[in-house]
Amino acid sequence: MEAESMKYRYLGRSGLKVSVLGFGNMTSGWAEGAEEWNSQCIDKCIKKGVNFFDTAELYGSGVAETILGRNLKQGGYDRDDLIITTKFFPSKFGIQGLSRKRLRQAIDHSLERMQLDYVDIIYLHRFDPEVPLEESIRIANEIIDSDKAFYWGTSNFTPQQISECFTICEKHGWIPPIVEQCEYHMFEREIVERDYVPSFNQYGLGTSVWSPLCGGILSGRYNDGNVSAGRFDNSLFASFTKPKWDKYIGNRKEAAVKILTGLKAIADELRCSQAQLAIAWVMKNPDVSTAITGASSIAQLEDNLGSVEVIEKLSPEVLSRIEDLLGNRPTPSMNWRNFSPNTPRR
């Protein structure tokens, strides 16, 4: 895949164009030797047309931000071509949460770690019930006014919380969020395909979705149903993959293996990897602005990058076969305009 084949979408109703595949360095804060391969990954991504790079102060308590900034500086890339984002977590650094005091300090610390004058997007990295949402939004706008960021967004907010953000911004004439960062993959569909639909339609909200491979479960690595801590000598396994297996698969191993091997068969027919199929399926959704992937090796990254070319292979027939395998299409919200008193009740 050459850079020319990368696809780009507007992020919500903003004029910001992002690559449909983004790169996140969440694991860089924990993995040994992360800086070297992170540098290689960034270089590979940029050469392939990826312009969206995601990190957060939470990742390794700032280590991931430091690694990203150092590698960007050493690479000598054109900053104007890149979209750099970071996120501020309510309780990671002290007791002040997403307060005015903490967010003012957080943006300065993040920029210092990344050796940047500004980031393109800041996220409120979870809703903070202990700080008035209006206070957090006010300071997000102040950060934008000070040119330390250009846009802001939410991460793992409920539809109701997102709606409240827009109500507050409309009341005060503030800049509203342009993006929500949420989990989305073949096993986690309701929030994107049903719950956020009013926000997409009413506010034109964009999305930067994470975990398109469900912690690696959809990559093909666990098609035999063998998910045990001793199988892979990787501390990240216990933190990310095993909890997702327990949540989405649980005791339904036989059914899961049937789904996973069925996906592998479809991928083989399309002449792509199972991981590419899963990521392309996520990007096929027009409500997905960019899908954030990570990697622990260049080989894995190159495979992920190839998923962009698979999007066009997902014909209605292929998508229908995938639906038959998954069997978890969310039930749409009731359209009461079409309701009839004579409709049989269940």
Rank of each mutant, 00 (worst) to 15 (best):
G204K: 01
S235W: 01
L301T: 09
K284M: 02
Y222T: 09
K253A: 09
Y203F: 15
N285E: 11
M283T: 03
A299M: 11
Q274Y: 01
G250L: 11
A265D: 15
R221E: 06
A255V: 15
A295N: 07
S239C: 02
W210L: 05
K264P: 04
N251K: 13
G230E: 13
N234R: 12
Q274C: 01
N201W: 01
Q202E: 15
I217A: 05
N201T: 06
R271D: 15
F237K: 06
V282T: 15
Y248K: 01
K247R: 15
F237D: 11
G216K: 01
S239E: 03
N285C: 12
D268M: 05
I249H: 07
K284A: 14
S208P: 05
A291T: 13
A275N: 06
W210D: 06
I298P: 09
K253L: 04
T207Q: 05
Q300W: 14
I217H: 03
S239D: 10
D268I: 00
F240T: 07
Y203S: 06
S273H: 05
K247V: 04
D233P: 02
S235Y: 04
N226T: 11
A280I: 02
R252S: 12
V227W: 04
S228P: 09
S228Y: 08
I279S: 11
L205W: 00
K242D: 05
S289D: 12
F200Y: 15
G204C: 02
T293P: 01
P243H: 01
K284N: 13
Q300P: 13
A255M: 11
W281M: 03
G262P: 08
G220R: 05
D233S: 14
L218K: 02
L270Y: 00
N223G: 10
S211F: 08
K258E: 15
L236H: 00
N251T: 12
S235F: 09
N234V: 04
S289T: 15
R231I: 15
P243S: 04
L270K: 06
S239H: 03
A256K: 08
N251E: 13
A267R: 00
I217M: 08
L277F: 07
F240R: 07
I259G: 05
G206T: 11
G225P: 02
I259S: 09
S219N: 00
